[in-house]
């Protein structure tokens, strides 16, 4: 599935990372020139808890370098092969968002090339900074439509001494856990900290040997609903036995309690579409992460403030060259 090429246009450009999140959002344009970002750690000062990497650096590499110094950056992508550029462009946060915050809160400075070929720096290298507009946050989640990321400076944190998943009936009791998941059968909670705290908080819960897994399948999506609606929305994804056998297939899901993200997977596109309509019925929306029907534009809903977003897109990519099709903003150029 791709957006058809337009022979009357200037060259389309598509930044490429590790292709681990390639199907996220709208379908990419066919025949685009693929560009790749530099790889490697450019600066790391453990005592400042900041690291600057080329956007092509994989999360695996980043995490390995930080772990050597007892640090981490809680980007937590689904695949460790994902690149920093891809993670930032998709803006998909991992389950530890509950405690560590979303991807956008870990980014201090970005340097990217705009659609009209300028190298732009936004933000700054220090852990605190309000100089000028917040281009790092604008970049996160922009799906490569405003620039090709060259490098980013990230905020790091001490790695917890102990990190352990537990399951039990009362996972809400834990004080600010790192993550809480529910898949309809059981609740799991990730406790991080020093040994005595993890043990004290985990009392009455059962330790899990392996972390819970997100559902997998050829058709995948990510539902975003207000945290207050997450249980109702997730429960509605499960078909009751009374529903007819000819109805579309099963939706497998795992919900991030307290956050409002629900990871869904299905074996057919119709089931994924059903998950999206459940999300809409609960005041949320669903981003396509993989698969989906041929008509799926990735979002399945009108983007809020689309006119303003189009002007933002235009500001950085006036010719509309970057990742056409990824973000369905409607025509930038009338």
């Amino acid at each position: 599935m791709t957006t058809p090429p337009d022979t009357n246009r200037a060259l389309d450009i598509a930044p490429v990372g590790a292709r681990t999140h390639w199907e996220v959002g709208g379908p990419p344009v066919a025949g685009a020139t693929e560009v790749r970002a530099p790889v490697g750690v450019l600066a790391y000062e453990p005592a400042d808890m900041t690291i600057t990497v080329g956007a092509g650096t994989t999360f695996d590499e980043l995490d390995r370098v930080l772990a050597e110094q007892g640090q981490q950056c809680a980007l937590d992508p689904r695949s460790r092969a994902a690149t920093v550029g891809g993670i930032l462009a998709c803006g998909l946060s991992g389950p530890r968002r509950l405690r560590h915050g979303p991807v956008r809160d870990h980014v201090l400075e970005v340097r990217f090339e705009t659609g009209d070929g300028r190298l732009v720096k936004g933000g700054g290298p220090t852990v605190k900074n309000v100089t000028g507009y917040d281009l790092p946050r604008l970049f996160v989640g922009s799906l490569g439509t405003i620039g090709v990321l060259h490098q980013a400076t990230l905020r790091c944190r001490p790695r917890p001494v102990r990190s352990q998943w537990f399951t039990g009936v009362d996972t809400a009791r834990a004080f600010r856990p790192a993550a809480r998941l529910w898949d309809g059968r059981r609740e799991a909670v990730l406790l991080e900290g020093v040994d005595v705290d993890v043990e004290a908080e985990g009392r009455g819960l059962a330790a899990l040997a392996a972390p819970p897994r997100f559902p997998d399948g050829p058709h995948r999506g990510r539902i975003s609903v207000a945290p207050g609606a997450v249980r109702a929305c997730a429960a509605a994804l499960t078909r009751t036995p009374s529903e007819s056998a000819s109805a579309p297939g099963e939706v497998r899901w795992c919900a991030e309690l307290g956050v409002g993200t629900i990871h869904v997977a299905a074996d057919d596109a119709a089931a994924l579409a059903r998950a999206r309509s459940v999300a809409h019925a609960h005041g949320g929306w669903m981003l396509r992460e993989a698969g989906g029907s041929a008509a799926d534009d990735g979002y399945g809903c009108a983007l809020p403030n689309a006119a303003l977003m189009r002007r933002v897109k235009d500001a950085f990519d006036p010719a509309g060259k970057l990742n056409r099709g990824r973000l369905p903003l409607g025509a930038v150029h009338a």
Binding site: R97, P102, V225
Partner: peptide
Amino acid sequence: LPDGTEARLGSLAPDAPGYDLRGCFVGS
């Protein structure tokens, strides 16, 4: 917005679709 129209930037849902206009607005 500066043209006198009203808009919601961001959402209670963890992610709002499209650009993080909320993030642009904070600190502007």
